[in-house]
Amino acid sequence: MAQAALTDLLQEESIRLDCTATDRLDAVRQCGQALVAVGAADETYVDAMLQREQSVSTFVGEGVAIPHGTLAGKESVKRDALVVLRFPDGVDWDGNDVRVCVGIAAAGGGHVAILSQLAEILLDPAKAERLRSATDAQQVYDLLTPDED
């Protein structure tokens, strides 16, 4: 995927590397607000994300969670987009220590390649560590750019 497509989905202003949250639902709410801020969803999507998190956790391992809405919440999605919020102090996620949240709003499949790449990162402990310790947006873009294959 070209870098242009990646920056369409994940705008630079949606990469926030120095966040703090009081708890996991606060972190999810911040991801939702960030998606609303870039016009990817309306406010009701934030509630759908909170609802989803309370029914099934979106923790995916390696200190990463991928908050997103429910099937019903898809109606509040205006376009496919991702946000990356980093919590350097960690957020307690039902006993797991989460450092990075990748918030997702998706009505279509535009985000599939990036999520596959995220899976690759999570299966590689060294890459996962680089994601958890990223301090500028370019490092995040570099990690999330899908491999050519």
Partner: peptide, 17 residues
């Protein structure tokens, strides 16, 4: 998965490969 936009997408990408 519940919404078909998060976890299932990640795992499906892996299995496809």
């Amino acid at each position: 998965c519940d919404a078909g936009m998060g976890s299932s997408v990640m795992l499906a990408g892996q299995l496809k490969k």
